[in-house]
Nucleic acid binder design. Sequence first.
DNA 1: CTGAAAGCGCTTACAG
DNA 2: CTGAAAGCGCTTACAG
Lengths: 340, 340
Amino acid sequence: MSQSGRTVSITDVAAHAGVSHQTVSRVLNGHPYVSVRTRDAVESAIRDLGYRPSRAARALAMGSSRSVTVLASNTTLYGYAATLQGIEEAARMKRLSLMISVVDSLDADVIQAAVSSVSDPRSGSVIVIAYDQVGLRTLQALPQDIPHAAAIGRSFSSTTRQKPDPRWVWLADYDAAFAATQHLLGLGHRTVHHVPIPSWTKDQREGGWRAALRQAGVEVPELPAPGWDARAGYQAGQALARDPDVTAILCGNDDLALGVFRALHEAGRRIPEDVNVIGFDDAPQSAFLTPSLSTVRLDFVGLGRACFDVLWAQISNMPAPSRIPLAIPQLVLRESTSKK
Amino acid sequence: MSQSGRTVSITDVAAHAGVSHQTVSRVLNGHPYVSVRTRDAVESAIRDLGYRPSRAARALAMGSSRSVTVLASNTTLYGYAATLQGIEEAARMKRLSLMISVVDSLDADVIQAAVSSVSDPRSGSVIVIAYDQVGLRTLQALPQDIPHAAAIGRSFSSTTRQKPDPRWVWLADYDAAFAATQHLLGLGHRTVHHVPIPSWTKDQREGGWRAALRQAGVEVPELPAPGWDARAGYQAGQALARDPDVTAILCGNDDLALGVFRALHEAGRRIPEDVNVIGFDDAPQSAFLTPSLSTVRLDFVGLGRACFDVLWAQISNMPAPSRIPLAIPQLVLRESTSKK
DNA sequence: CTGAAAGCGCTTACAG
DNA sequence: CTGAAAGCGCTTACAG
């Protein structure tokens, strides 16, 4: 392995093997029509020299770099991480390399900078995880001529008139929240309270909850401050726990529900005897909480894969996948809800 | 924005602005010595044409691509995700782009393939998250001449003779597990049981637990099957819950502890009255469980940053950071432990 | 302050 | 089956 000087290039390999660099390129790319002798010679030269091809040079010559960049405001929250996992698995299958760029500010310059750095249409494609407002803005700032797809957090089910972009993929949040709220009302609660995740349109989880209440003709309670994690759920839960009228709570995700559990427990209110709670996501821990958490199972990994499929159709010039088989959100009933 | 034909290159911009492409390159890179008129002309040409530079071409010409690839077997488990977050933040500050490549198999060919694809020494650097055996193998397979760093899961504290590689960074798992076990013994338990995460050397969490027991001269119980998630903890916990001799359990991470909670609860054993439980990691939910979970706080985000710092020293040819300020693991006592 | 030249390391036709 | 040529889109000296 040549340690000194510059790194070994295809030309060095060629010289070492006594062939032209084009021939080396051929064996590198598994072309047919290379004699066995030559192939062997090249391969051992590669080994001797410890040659590793330059991705940059290859990308330049081929006009594309077989890479996807994921743009997201977060990579650790359950929904984001699981979506990322789905994208990663799908990208790996197709041998695309995965880049990730976190955009965590609503500042227009920050968003613009992030978008610019991926906006080289020769060098790749983009997937935006647009579950939050930063994500949505990022998606909007993305030049339309670059191949891309997006996972978004809405369903368009009943509220929207505008046609969704065919490059967008989503889970039916709205419908699922609607159904979960209906389920709680069906248990006999006078109304259902909600601890929201941040949202920016009315056709997401919060919207589904609101619509179900309105349809049932019941009071729509005030909302606590939105948040993503257990701490936010705990804080929202403390106020709810004090209010004896609160008997059913739909949480915007399972982490919030976990915090709500804690607040209710501290206030001496039992779950499910005094208060019913439903979460959202079905995170891996939720089935093992005490009480186990009723929740809406969302297939984020599948969504990530679907997102990649949409992207892949553009990259490979295949027809867009007509219908992506996405698991329907499903209400999973466990111990935290029960007949009242 | 030119939609038709090939994408616009620096040459197109030059022609449009009536200058040479070198001059365009100068304004692109913020060189001094460009007249204001020229700069303006170029900038408006860039805007008119919707020009975006080619990363590949730039990388080729400059001889490096300012990127880090993270190699990890998982991106969603708390420790991994938090480490990744630390790396990402640090890389973003230095304007390096972040690639991630998941290696989830011990198969030598799979590992080799992953390593080869990042082993272009011109095109970047590598960080390996080597908390598990796949990660360790990946690290071992990595060519030594490529700039890299690794986050590993051991402490070398008392058991190891060999010098650690200066490119490795770690949290003192062993010491923390030792201390946590001692704490439980100090509460009066006859011994401490352990639910392990998978490990491959004896100087990790399991090793620290074992050493503390041995030092105290108490029985070292059999281990249940290792695992990472709540389900694994639940399964291990079911057997432990049946055994009345089990009064203290140290879990390899907080998700395992959450599953153990559930199993104990189902068996009618109270925490902390009947059984004390300590977790590992201090995941964001752990403080909000019921009972709240005593655990070892590990600064994974800081570890990720430290890892990047070690890498950055190599890339920028700075002297290696002598001592990386890493938060010491800290035993956080909450409701799941108490005087017996 | 600015242009002509050379080169980064590959791949893709084109000839043989 | 294999080599000589051209080009991918930039940057970095080198001359002016």
